[in-house]
Amino acid sequence: FCVVVQVLFCLKMGNMESDDKFGFVVMDGNGALFTTLSGSTRELLHKLSYDHPKKLGSGLQAARMSYLVHMEMLDSYLSKIGALATQYYINPLTGQPNVTGLILAGSSDVQVQLMKLGLFDHRLVAKLVNVVEVSYGVENGFNQAIEQLSDILANGKYTRERYLMDMYFGEVRKRPGKYVFGVDGTMNVLESKPGAVKTLIVWDNLDINRYVMKNSLTGETVIKYLNKEQEGNTENYKDLDVEEKMPLLEWLANENRRFGCAPELVTNKSWESYQFCKGFEGIGAILDNRIALGDGEDT
């Protein structure tokens, strides 16, 4: 293995000004790059190259030997990545991570092997922002990873998002927890229990519209929240005339004074926020401790 120590370099990245420092490990089958990004300043810490084993002749026996040598060298390469990550992203004085978050980027095969073999320090696993697959290695892969995650890395947004997700999933883990999730559950509490919601969390790309409809037979006003798929189902409009249609995210922003809380927007780019958007419908709320849900209401 050849470890090349590089010098500090800086590069302007538009509006990415933040005090948060993120660590990046970019890796593929040819080498690994260890860097940090703080605002618009990048620091290249180490570059590790992987020397592929030479072919050991021809024939079945030689192929087996080549495979064994390759696996031994790969294990050593992955162990070196894990050790260098600990060396550069753990403060030796405090024993704690020295970065706000950590991003693994590169070949998915290498990433899977690294995590599967348990070669990554558990203190750094807790700091993982995301694991992204990029088409390139080393410097070009670093640029691609930044581009993919630019909206969450900019202006300290990750710190706020991590704080919100920690609070929300902290309530989810409690029994009972003071939280609601999903469109129906969240909107029911907002509409029926003013002041009950302490923190309203919404995916910034929530693709749901709020409909105000009137039943053509009874004259009753009906409120529905429909995603794209549901909008294509004619059963959702049976005997109903649409009087108003508005993106739910926009409606929540307009009505924040009535509910006493403005929506806190999150991306789906971190592990926690991706789980929130995928498994919790991208909308949920932390409830005020002084407000209790009635019997039979799900949280």
Rank of each mutant, 00 (worst) to 15 (best):
G57S: 00
Q96L: 15
L104D: 04
M65A: 14
D75W: 03
K54C: 04
S49Y: 13
Q87K: 12
P53I: 00
L68E: 15
G101N: 06
T100Q: 12
N98Q: 04
R123V: 07
L114E: 07
A62C: 08
L56T: 05
G118F: 08
S40E: 09
T94V: 08
G39E: 01
L45Q: 06
Y67L: 09
D121N: 14
H70P: 03
L45N: 05
L44D: 11
P53G: 02
T94K: 05
R42N: 13
D51T: 10
S107L: 03
Q111V: 04
V69P: 00
A105D: 06
Y89Q: 04
H122C: 06
I90P: 04
E72S: 11
D51Y: 09
S40K: 06
K80F: 05
K54Q: 09
D75H: 14
D109F: 10
K47A: 11
G101K: 03
S66A: 09
D51Q: 09
Y88S: 01
M115K: 14
L84M: 09
A85H: 02
V99S: 05
G106Y: 00
D51V: 10
H70K: 10
N98G: 06
S76R: 13
D121V: 01
G106W: 04
L68S: 10
T41Y: 06
L119V: 08
Y77V: 05
P92C: 05
L84N: 05
T86W: 00
P92Q: 04
I81N: 04
M115N: 13
K80Q: 12
P92E: 01
T100Y: 01
A63K: 10
L93A: 15
T86V: 02
A83L: 08
T94P: 07
Q111P: 11
G59T: 01
V69C: 05
L93N: 14
N91V: 08
D109N: 12
H46V: 12
G95N: 01
A85W: 03
S76G: 15
L117H: 15
L74K: 15
D121Y: 06
L68G: 01
G118Q: 07
R64Q: 10
E72M: 02
S79W: 01
L117E: 14
